[in-house]
Deep mutational scan, measured.
Amino acid sequence: EEKRQVKQVAKEKLLEQSPNSKVQVRRVQKQGNTIRVELELRTNGKKENYTVEVERQGNTWTVKRITRT
């Protein structure tokens, strides 16, 4: 359940930055209360990979860091 929520948060964050792209989740890793989500962003056939680190704060998820990989 929490992985599902985190995927959603990570996707939304990337789509905010580039709204007309397609996002696909590649991998989800958990480390303590930080969850790392690896995503693939496609814009006009151009692929970019991103890693989004999401942290739990109380009962909400906040995006800590977005890295292009």
Rank of each mutant, 00 (worst) to 15 (best):
Gly58Met: 04
Arg26Ala: 04
Lys46Tyr: 12
Gln17Leu: 15
Thr43Lys: 10
Glu1Asn: 06
Ile66Phe: 03
Thr51Leu: 12
Val6His: 03
Glu40Ala: 05
Gln31Ala: 08
Tyr50Lys: 00
Val63Cys: 03
Leu15Gln: 06
Arg36Gln: 09
Gln31Phe: 12
Gln57Trp: 08
Leu14Cys: 06
Pro19Ser: 03
Val9Trp: 02
Gln24Ser: 14
Leu41Gln: 03
Glu53Met: 09
Glu48Arg: 07
Ile35Ser: 05
Arg56Ala: 06
Ile35Gln: 02
Glu16Asn: 06
Arg4Phe: 10
Leu14Asn: 02
Lys11Gln: 08
Arg36Tyr: 15
Arg56Gln: 07
Leu15Val: 05
Glu38Asp: 11
Ala10Arg: 01
Glu16Gly: 06
Leu41Tyr: 02
Arg56Tyr: 11
Arg56Ser: 05
Thr62Ile: 15
Gln8Lys: 14
Ser21Lys: 02
Gln57Thr: 13
Tyr50His: 01
Glu53Trp: 13
Ile35Ala: 08
Asn20Val: 06
Thr51Asp: 04
Leu14Met: 12
Arg65Ser: 15
Gly45Arg: 05
Asn44Val: 07
Val54Gln: 00
Glu40Gly: 02
Arg56Val: 06
Gly58Pro: 01
Thr43Glu: 10
Glu16Cys: 06
Gly58His: 05
Lys7Val: 15
Lys22Asp: 11
Gln31Ser: 13
Lys30Asp: 10
Ile66Tyr: 03
Lys7Asp: 05
Lys64Leu: 14
Val6Ser: 07
Lys47Leu: 14
Arg42Met: 13
Arg36Ile: 15
Lys3Val: 15
Trp61Asp: 03
Gln24Tyr: 14
Gln57Met: 12
Lys7Pro: 04
Arg26Glu: 03
Val9Arg: 05
Arg42Cys: 08
Lys11Met: 14
Arg65Gln: 13
Ile66Gly: 00
Ser21His: 03
Lys47Cys: 08
Gly58Ile: 02
Gln5Lys: 09
Gln31Cys: 11
Val9His: 05
Gln24Glu: 10
Val23Ala: 08
Thr69Val: 12
Thr69Cys: 07
Val28Pro: 01
Val52Tyr: 01
Glu2Leu: 06
Lys22Ser: 12
Gln57Lys: 11
Val25Trp: 02
Gln57Ala: 11
Glu12Ser: 10
Asn20Ala: 11
Thr51Ile: 14
Lys13Met: 09
Ser21Asn: 03
Arg4His: 12
Val54Pro: 00
Lys3Trp: 15
Arg36Glu: 06
Lys64Glu: 03
Gly32Thr: 02
Glu38Phe: 15
Glu53Tyr: 12
Gly45Asn: 08
Thr62His: 14
Lys3Asp: 15
Leu14Arg: 02
Lys64Thr: 14
Leu14Gln: 01
Pro19His: 04
Val9Met: 10
Tyr50Thr: 00
Thr34Tyr: 10
Lys13Ala: 14
Val6Lys: 02
Asn20Asp: 10
Ile66Glu: 00
Gly58Phe: 05
Trp61Ser: 04
Lys7Arg: 12
Glu1Tyr: 02
Thr67Glu: 10
Glu2Val: 07
Ile35Val: 09
Gly45Asp: 09
Arg26Asn: 08
Arg26Ile: 15
Val28Trp: 09
Glu12Asp: 14
Lys64His: 04
Tyr50Met: 03
Gly32Ser: 04
Thr69Asn: 12
Tyr50Gln: 00
Gly32Gln: 04
Thr43Val: 12
Pro19Val: 05
Gly45Ser: 10
Asn59Leu: 08
Thr34Met: 11
Lys30Trp: 15
Asn49Asp: 07
Glu40His: 05
Thr62Asn: 10
Leu39Ser: 00
Tyr50Glu: 00
Val9Pro: 02
Glu38His: 13
Lys13Cys: 09
Thr62Phe: 14
Ala10His: 02
Thr67Ile: 14
Gln17Asp: 08
Asn33Thr: 10
Val52Cys: 03
Ile35Pro: 00
Lys46Arg: 12
Pro19Asn: 03
Gln57Arg: 10
Arg26Ser: 07
Ile35Gly: 02
Asn44Arg: 10
Thr62Trp: 14
Glu38Gln: 12
Val28His: 02
Val52Phe: 02
Arg68Ala: 08
Gly32Val: 03
Gln24Phe: 14
Gln17Asn: 10
Arg65Lys: 14
Val37Gly: 00
Lys11Glu: 09
Gln8Glu: 08
Ile66Trp: 03
Val9Asp: 02
Val28Lys: 01
Arg68Asp: 03
Asn44Gln: 06
Thr60Lys: 14
Gln29Lys: 08
Asn59Asp: 13
Arg36Trp: 15
Val25Arg: 01
Val52Arg: 00
Glu12Pro: 01
Glu2Arg: 08
Gln29His: 14
Val9Gln: 06
Gln5Ala: 11
Gly32Ala: 05
Thr60Met: 12
Asn20Cys: 07
Lys22Arg: 11
Val37Trp: 01
Lys46Trp: 10
Thr60His: 14
Thr60Val: 13
Arg26Pro: 01
Gly32Glu: 04
Val54Leu: 13
Glu55Gln: 09
Val63His: 00
Asn59Gly: 13
Thr69Gln: 11
Thr62Asp: 06
Glu12Asn: 07
Val52Pro: 00
Trp61Ile: 14
Leu15Phe: 04
Trp61Lys: 01
Val25Gln: 01
Trp61Asn: 04
Ala10Thr: 04
Tyr50Asn: 00
Arg27Phe: 11
Val37Cys: 02
Val6Asn: 02
Leu14Ala: 06
Arg42Glu: 14
Val6Cys: 06
Leu41Lys: 03
Lys3Leu: 15
Gln24Thr: 14
Val37His: 00
Glu48Val: 09
Glu38Pro: 00
Lys47Ala: 10
Ile35Lys: 00
Lys30Ala: 14
Val37Pro: 00
Leu41Phe: 04
Asn33Gly: 08
Val37Gln: 00
Ser18Lys: 11
Glu2Tyr: 02
Thr51Asn: 06
Asn59Ala: 09
Glu48Pro: 00
Val52Gly: 00
Gln8His: 09
Lys22Met: 11
Pro19Met: 03
Gln24Gly: 04
Arg56Phe: 12
Arg36Asp: 02
Ser18Arg: 10
Gln57Pro: 01
Lys11Gly: 03
Ile66Leu: 04
Glu53Ile: 14
Lys22Phe: 12
Pro19Thr: 03
Thr43Cys: 05
Glu40Arg: 06
Leu14Gly: 01
Leu14Lys: 03
Thr62Lys: 13
Asn20Tyr: 03
Thr69Gly: 09
Arg65Tyr: 09
Lys30Phe: 15
Val63Asp: 00
Arg65Ala: 15
Val37Ile: 10
Val25Leu: 03
Gly58Asp: 10
Lys7Leu: 14
Thr34Glu: 04
Arg42Asp: 15
Leu15Ala: 04
Val25Phe: 06
Gln24Met: 13
Gln8Ile: 11
Gln5Arg: 13
Val63Phe: 03
Gly58Gln: 05
Gly32Pro: 02
Gln31Ile: 15
Thr34Ala: 08
Glu2Thr: 12
Ile35His: 10
Tyr50Ile: 06
Thr34Val: 14
Ala10Trp: 01
Lys30His: 13
Asn59Trp: 05
Glu12Ile: 09
Val28Cys: 06
Gln5Asp: 10
Arg65Asn: 11
Thr43Phe: 13
Thr51Arg: 05
Glu12Cys: 07
Lys30Cys: 09
Glu53Asn: 03
Gln29Phe: 14
Arg36Pro: 00
Thr67Met: 11
Leu41Arg: 03
Gln57Asp: 14
Arg56Pro: 04
Thr67Lys: 07
Lys46Thr: 11
Val37Leu: 07
Arg56Cys: 08
Asn49Val: 13
Asn49Ser: 11
Asn33Asp: 12
Leu39Asp: 00
Lys22Glu: 14
Lys30Thr: 13
Glu2Ser: 08
Gln57Gly: 04
Val23Gln: 01
Lys7Tyr: 06
Glu53Cys: 06
Ala10Phe: 02
Lys30Glu: 09
